[in-house]
């Protein structure tokens, strides 16, 4: 059974086509990069994968189940997590609380349990959520900032916090949308190490990224989109030498 398979996917907005019959296979346990010039439809693809947008045409299967008509929260509980290109943290919540929210779909406690539990005894589930959130914050090296408001973190830390928040839902597939945007060289290197570490723990990663050095360094497979079409796919080395890709990039930069 395929891990993630996208077939013949198209999306248009008011007549403008963002994706044209895109097909994509993501294999379990890999880092799969999605590259292409701005406006190539990469983020649109992520938005469809996470259920925010519905495709105009085409099918998406995740571990054998069709997911293209599901609500975002259902998709998350099936095991697809994501981060956002334009960071969307819960700004006035603390760093720790942000990660704890990420745990929502793996926990149960409703309003009634909250209210009718015994006084002075914390719910076991609440303790578990907190422990796991703390552990994830250590994993992304934000533990010492856990009581700060999310909005007060520097840019690079906010991106790492988004990753921790997504990991809290124990995703099988993690979608990272330009995780190094706005980071300096050192931060980018740290992040590359972090992404590899996440992959080694068994989480498959689909990555949108503009930093070619990073992409070529850590990816197992690279797919290139241009004007909503898939124009190339393969091992990083093959992609670097593909004339079509070079043309797409040079053409876009003019």
């Amino acid at each position: 059974m395929d891990f993630l398979s996208i077939e013949n996917l198209s999306k248009s907005f008011d007549g403008v086509t963002a994706l044209r019959q895109v097909g994509l296979e993501v294999k379990s346990g890999k880092i799969h990069a999605l590259i292409g010039p701005n406006g190539a439809g990469k983020t649109t693809l992520f938005n469809i994968l996470s259920g925010i947008l519905k495709p105009t045409q085409g099918r998406i299967r995740f571990k054998g189940q069709q997911i293209d008509a599901l609500r975002p929260d259902r998709i998350t509980s099936l095991g697809i997590g994501r981060t956002f290109q334009n960071i969307r943290l819960f700004k006035s919540l603390t760093v720790l609380e942000n990660v704890m929210v990420g745990r929502h779909c793996r926990t149960r406690t409703g309003l009634a349990r909250t209210f009718f539990s015994l006084p002075f005894k914390k719910l076991e589930e609440e303790i578990n959520i907190r422990d796991m959130a703390n552990e994830l914050l250590r994993f992304v090296s934000l533990f010492d900032k856990k009581e700060s408001k999310a909005a007060s973190l520097p840019y690079g830390s906010q991106r790492r916090l988004e990753i921790a928040r997504a990991l809290a839902a124990e995703p099988l597939l993690l979608l990272l949308d330009e995780p190094t945007a706005g980071m300096d060289t050192r931060e980018t290197e740290d992040l590359a190490a972090l992404i590899t570490k996440i992959r080694d723990q068994g989480v498959t990663i689909l990555l949108i990224e503009h930093d070619m050095h990073l992409v070529m360094g850590i990816s197992d497979v690279v797919t290139v989109l241009n004007f909503g079409r898939k124009i190339a796919e393969g091992h990083p080395r093959e992609i670097q030498s593909s004339p079509e890709v070079i043309e797409a990039y040079l053409g876009a930069q003019e």
Partner: peptide, 25 residues
């Protein structure tokens, strides 16, 4: 509520409804 799972879910929806939904709420 303010220290519970649903309370946090409510607050996250106030902050950013779309992100809350994508986080599985």
């Amino acid at each position: 509520l303010s220290k519970s799972r649903m309370g946090r879910a409510f607050e996250s929806m106030r902050e950013d409804e779309l992100a809350a939904e994508v986080m599985g709420i």
